[in-house]
Design a protein around this nucleic acid. Structure first.
Lengths: 347, 347
DNA sequence: TGCATTTGTGTAAGCGCTTTCAGCACGCAA
DNA sequence: TTGCGTGCTGAAAGCGCTTACACAAATGCA
C-alpha cells in the first residue's frame, strides 16, 4: 500500500491533479488521458491513501459506536443494522467497548477524533463528557436513552408497551408481581419499562435488581426471589433475564406458566425457542441501528442540524410463558393498546 | 474538533514543533515552556487531529476485523477479546461484516487502506483477494481456518477434540450417528471437526448440512433428519445448531439423551443452561481474539515478520445431553485424549 | 576565561491527497 | 483578423501533524 499518486502521475506522464480528477471523476479529463492514467493505476496497483484523502477532504468517512459490552443479541443486532447502513453510505464503523475499561473518557475522545460522528448506547458515555462532545461539535446519536439536548436520540417505545404487557398479565388474574432486572440507570430503556408496568400494577409489583442483564444474572436473582414468598408473575427487563428466570423456575420444580408466569422484552431469537415460549415485547433492533446510521449521516452531511428524537413502535408478542390462553382465539387489542404496541399471537 | 496545533502554538508563543514535543514528550522542552503549552492546550481544548498524526507517523493506529456476520456468541466473543487487547495496545478496531454484501472485495480493500492490519474470520475473504493483500504487504491474521502462507493463523484445536468426542460417544454404545451442520467450506473449523469424528466413526456417521450455523437452521435440519430413520446420536457443528437439534427433538417428543444423544461445540453460555445441559467442546473464544490482536501487533510493529500458526487447546465438556453417566464418578481421560483436549465434568 | 557540550527552540520539509486558479490550445462567431 | 468561450491540464496551496536539522543560549570543565 505504498505506491502514491505521484508515481502514477509520473508513469502516466501527467500531473497528480489529473490523476486525481481521472480517478474521482471530478473535472474534465480527455478520454485518452484518462486511459493512460487508468492503465498506470492498474499496472502499479494503486489505491489512494485513505489518510491523504481524508485529510484533504476534511472528513473521515467513518462512524464510531460506543457500547458497554457486546453480550447478548440486543447490542449485536443493533450494531449489525448500523454497520450495514453505514457501509451503504460509504462509511466504516469503528467500535469501542467500555465495559471494564479505565479511562473511558480518553477512549471516547480518541474515538471522536477519528470519526465524523458516533452512536452511543444508552448511558455508555458519562453525561459531562457528552456535554463536552456536543460543545465540540461532535455529531452524536444515542440509542436507548431519554432525549438529550444537542443530539439525536432513537429508541423503541417502552412505556405504553409496558402498560399493555402489565394489563395483559393483570387480565390473567395475577395479583402479585415482581420486576426482575430493576433499572440501574434512570432514563434508559429498562427504567421506562419499569415505570410503565408500575403505572398499571402499582404496589402489586416489586423491583428486584440483577447485576447485569444476562441469563446468568437473571437465573441467580430469580432463584433467590423464588425461594421466598414468590410472586405469581415475573416481568423481566429483557429476554435474557427472562430465560434465566425460566431456568431458575425449572430448577426449583416450578411449572411455567402453571405456577409462575414469566415475560421478557426484545423478542430475541431464543425467546421463541424457549420452553415455554416466551411472552415478550418485540423491538426492531436492527432497524434501531439502521435508523441511527441514517440519522447520523444526516447530521454529518448537514442535511439536518436540529436534533431529532425518534421512537420506534413495538409489538406485544403473546406466547405461552405468561399463562394459558384459549387455543386459537385471536386476542383482540385491549383499549390500552391504542396508539401503542400491536398485540400479536405467535403461531 | 477544529482547533489546530498552530493556534496552540500562537497562544503559547512558541512554534508548532515545540507544542508537538511538549505534548508527545519527544525531545527536550523547558519546564516553563511546557507549562505555557499545556495551559494553551487546556484553554483551547485542543486535541491533535488523528488524521494529521497518522499521516505524519505513517500509521493508522487502527486494526480491522472482517467477519461474515455477528450472529451468535462465537463471533461476538472473539471480537470482544480482540477489541480489548487492541484498545490496550492503543489501536482502534474497524469492523466489516460481509454477509449479504455485494462488492466484498472493494469493501475489504477499502478497509485495508484505513488500518495497519486486520483480522479475518475463516474464509470471509476470497482467496485471490487474500493473496493480493499479502502481496501488497497488508498485515493479516486469520482465525479459524487452515494455515496459509504469508499470514498468521490462529485457531482452536479441532481434530483431536473431535476424535475424543466421537470416542466418548462410541463409549456410550451408540452405533448410528449424524453430523449436523456439515462443512460448507473446506479448511474451516467445522470441516476439521467433521474429519475428526469421521476418522473415528467412519461409515457409522453421515453428514447433514444446515443452511447456516444457527439455532433455526439446526432446528429445521434436525426435524427433517429425525423424522426419517433416525440416528442414535447427533454430533453438531456448534452449540447453536445443537440447541436447534434439542428443540427439534423436544417437538418430536423424543427424550434427550434417552432416545437421542446430542452434542455441540464451543461451550457458549447457553450450552450449560440447555435442557438437557449440552455436552460440548469448549474453545477459548475470547482468548482467540486476544491472541489474534497480539499477533497482529507483532506483525505491525515488526517484532516478528515470519508467519506463525497457533493452535489453542480445547476441553471436552461432558454434560448430560450425550447420555447417562455414573452420577459422580470422575471420568478418566481416555487414551485418545493424550496431547489433545482435557476432558472435564461440569458440576 | 575559553571551548566543548548540552539543552531548548524554530524552520522547514515532508506525509498523500484535493482543489483552486491560471494558462494554453483550439474552435467559432463577429 | 480579433475576441471570446470551452476543454483540458499543471502548478501550487492547503489539510494538521512529526521530525530532521540548524542554531542560539546555557552549562560544564579545564
Amino acid at each position: 500500500m505504498d505506491v502514491t499518486i505521484y508515481e502514477v502521475a509520473k508513469r502516466a506522464g501527467v500531473s497528480i491533479a489529473t490523476v486525481s480528477r481521472a480517478l474521482r471523476g471530478t473535472g474534465p479529463v480527455a478520454a485518452k488521458t484518462r486511459d493512460k492514467v487508468l492503465k498506470a493505476v492498474e499496472e502499479l496497483n494503486f489505491t489512494p491513501s485513505r489518510l491523504g484523502v481524508s485529510l484533504a477532504e476534511g472528513r473521515h468517512a467513518a462512524n464510531g459506536v460506543v457500547f458497554p459490552d457486546l453480550a447478548g443479541p440486543y447490542y449485536t443486532q443493533v450494531l449489525l443494522g448500523y454497520e450495514e447502513v453505514a457501509a451503504e453510505l460509504g462509511r466504516s464503523v469503528v467500535i469501542l467497548s467500555t465495559k471494564g475499561r479505565t479511562r473511558v473518557n480518553d477512549l471516547i475522545k480518541d474515538l471522536a477524533g477519528r470519526v465524523d460522528g458516533m452512536l452511543i448506547f444508552g448511558h455508555a458515555a458519562p453525561d459531562p463528557l457528552v456535554a463536552e462532545l456536543v460543545r465540540l461539535g461532535v455529531r452524536l446519536v444515542f440509542v436507548s436513552r431519554d432525549p438529550l439536548p444537542g443530539a439525536d436520540t432513537i429508541r423503541s417505545e417502552n412505556a405504553a408497551s409496558a402498560r399493555a404487557l402489565a394489563e395483559h398479565l393483570a387480565g390473567h388474574g395475577y395479583e402479585r408481581f415482581a420486576f426482575l432486572g430493576a433499572p440501574l440507570t434512570s432514563g434508559d430503556d429498562v427504567d421506562e419499562r419499569w415505570r410503565g408496568v408500575r403505572a398499571v400494577l402499582g404496589g402489586a409489583i416489586e423491583a428486584v435488581a440483577t447485576r447485569e442483564y444476562t441469563v446468568d444474572c437473571g437465573f441467580d436473582a430469580a432463584k433467590k426471589l423464588l425461594k421466598g414468598k414468590r410472586p405469581e408473575a415475573i416481568v423481566c427487563s429483557d429476554d435474557e433475564v427472562a430465560l434465566g428466570a425460566l431456568l431458575a423456575a425449572e430448577e426449583l420444580g416450578l411449572d411455567v406458566p402453571g405456577d409462575l408466569a414469566v415475560t421478557g422484552w426484545d423478542d430475541i431469537m431464543a425467546a421463541r425457542h424457549a420452553r415455554p415460549a416466551l411472552t415478550t415485547v418485540r423491538q426492531p433492533m436492527r432497524e434501531l441501528g439502521a435508523r441511527a446510521a441514517r440519522a447520523l449521516d444526516e447530521l454529518i452531511t448537514g442535511v439536518r442540524d436540529t436534533p431529532r428524537h425518534l421512537v420506534l413502535t413495538t409489538e406485544l408478542v403473546v406466547r405461552s410463558s405468561c399463562g394459558a390462553h384459549p387455543p386459537s382465539a385471536e386476542r383482540p387489542a385491549s383499549p390500552a393498546l391504542s396508539g401503542g404496541p400491536r398485540p400479536l399471537r405467535d403461531p
